[in-house]
């Protein structure tokens, strides 16, 4: 059985007819072609599939479409068009945060979610803020530094 589901995706009203149990992750990737949201575990552990739902970070591999009705979803493709998104992405590039890149869109989402609630995070705050996002390449140090850099450069953005 399919349902009509309306929601806001990266600032635009969208609608889709689909199984309400279909994972938001599959809808973003397969139906909307938003491939920046990655799947690396499919069970909520890694954070690669993170997006913002009503400004809060969630992992889309666990979210059924039926619970997205009327919500605002922001993916990396939306975030990268905003001043905040640009600031974080530039800081990641300058700070050497990116290696293989598979975890990185999710990290950028986590950074936005953190800075939105805590514009001047300590190292500990940052580490806690990205602890749901696994990265196997970087050892996290340069990601932490890059988020600090974004916070500094962001001056007033958050």
């Amino acid at each position: 059985m399919t349902r009509d589901i309306q929601f806001v995706l990266n600032g635009k009203d969208v609608a889709i007819t689909c199984d309400p149990l279909k994972r938001l992750l599959d809808v973003l990737r397969d139906d909307f072609g938003l491939f920046g949201t990655k799947e690396a575990c499919g069970e909520g552990e890694c954070g690669a599939c993170s997006v913002l739902k009503d400004s809060k970070i969630i992992t889309t591999c666990m979210v059924p479409m039926g619970s997205v009705q009327g919500c605002e979803i922001m993916t990396i493709e939306g975030l990268r068009e905003t001043a905040r998104g640009k600031c974080i992405i530039e800081a990641f590039a300058d700070g050497g945060a990116v290696q293989c890149g598979f975890c990185i869109p999710g990290m950028v989402i986590a950074a936005e979610s953190l800075l939105a609630s805590n514009p001047e995070p300590s190292e500990e705050d940052i580490r806690l803020g990205i602890s749901g996002n696994l990265c196997r390449c970087t050892g996290y140090d340069l990601i932490v530094e890059s988020i600090r850099l974004a916070a500094k450069r962001g001056n007033g953005l958050w």
């Binding site: 994972r23 599959d26 069970e43 666990m62």
Partner: peptide
């Protein structure tokens, strides 16, 4: 199904495949 963090994970069937439940479900989120 509330948050779905137990149910959607325990009944997942892989990428691009809708999770399947042995009983009817309702989303109460």
């Amino acid at each position: 199904i509330a948050g779905g963090t137990d149910l959607m994970v325990s009944h997942r069937r892989g990428t691009g495949v809708v999770p399947k439940f042995p009983w009817p479900v309702m989303i109460i989120t």
